[in-house]
Amino acid sequence: MIRVLLEPGSAAVGRRVGLLEGEAHYLRVRRARDGDPVELRDGKGLSGLGQLILAGKIWSVEVTAADRAARPAELTLAVGSGDRDRFAWVVEKATELGVTSVIPLESARTAGVASRLRTQHVGRLQRHALEAVKQSGTAWATTVEEPLPLADLVARAPTGQGWVADAGGAPPPAVVGVASLTVVIGPEGGLTARELQLVHDAGYAPVCLGPHTLRFETAAIAAAAAATAARLRGSHG
């Protein structure tokens, strides 16, 4: 069944609502027709059903079911703000894995990256998260925050658990609970020795994500997958 995106908070059973901008093109590509059943998502917890309505060239949907999924346990990736296109891939995959927030980190080795993610790119990345909602069926889109200096992140020590990707660390825990978890991933070239020490001192436990050097986007998704799997094990006792 086709999934379509609505404005957050607009869905109510029996209500006819418009679709999010850009969805009309998607429906044309999918050769959707008036009356087709669809799944509904808004990236803010909606898991609903509806029926498409085509009036002239304008698409809308009549909502037939509108359930709300609880927000998942907090899982934040704080990732060195490298190349913005590769960062978009991180956001997409993070949404599929249930990451609640992504923070682009500014550090010593991100300043010289000409194509790095900047504040003006955050809106486009948030749209990537919504597209991942549509593809994967999850009810919640990852929130993409504005770039944050590493010093500001460590100044607000982690709420709950904190990990930092570090080749000298232990493997990630096999089981974790539902307490919030923040994972720090350095940029291309890694965190400097001083930065890594600052993160350690702020309470982030070093974890090793593999035997080889990883690109920042690979490390971010490896960490998200490890955390998600560990939580699943914890939820199954």
Rank of each mutant, 00 (worst) to 15 (best):
Q126T: 02
I185R: 00
G160L: 03
V63F: 15
T192Q: 05
A151K: 11
A66D: 11
L125T: 04
T138K: 04
G98R: 09
T159V: 10
Q120M: 12
L196H: 05
G190T: 12
V133N: 03
E145N: 13
R3C: 06
I58M: 12
G169W: 03
W163K: 05
L198W: 08
A170I: 07
S10K: 12
W140Y: 15
G98F: 10
E146G: 05
G162E: 09
A32T: 00
L209V: 15
G14Y: 09
T95W: 09
A69F: 03
V4T: 13
V13A: 02
Q120R: 15
P206S: 06
E74Y: 11
G82N: 04
T143E: 14
P149N: 12
R109A: 09
T138W: 12
R31M: 03
D36R: 08
T228P: 02
L6N: 04
T228K: 07
P187T: 09
A151L: 03
A108I: 03
V175S: 04
V184N: 00
R118D: 00
E23W: 05
T138S: 10
L148D: 03
A157N: 05
A155M: 06
G168R: 12
R16S: 13
A94L: 11
V183S: 07
Q135S: 04
G210M: 08
T192L: 01
A141F: 11
R3Q: 01
G123E: 14
P211N: 03
R33G: 11
K57C: 05
Y204W: 07
S10Y: 14
A165G: 10
A65C: 09
T64C: 06
K44I: 09
G35R: 15
V122F: 02
A111T: 06
G82R: 00
A11Q: 13
G22W: 12
A155P: 15
R71D: 06
A227Q: 00
E145H: 14
G123V: 07
A11S: 10
L117V: 07
G22K: 15
P206Q: 01
F87N: 02
G190A: 00
A224G: 07
L20G: 08
S136N: 00
A94K: 14
R86V: 06
G137Y: 14
E188S: 06
R84H: 02
A219W: 09
E106A: 02
A132G: 04
A129G: 00
A165D: 13
S47V: 14
K93L: 10
G9M: 15
T143W: 15
P187F: 10
E145R: 06
A170V: 06
I221S: 04
R86W: 07
P37E: 14
P173N: 10
L77D: 07
S180N: 07
P158Q: 11
L5W: 13
R68D: 13
Q126M: 10
L40M: 10
L214V: 04
I103G: 01
A223C: 08
A179C: 05
R194Y: 05
R15H: 03
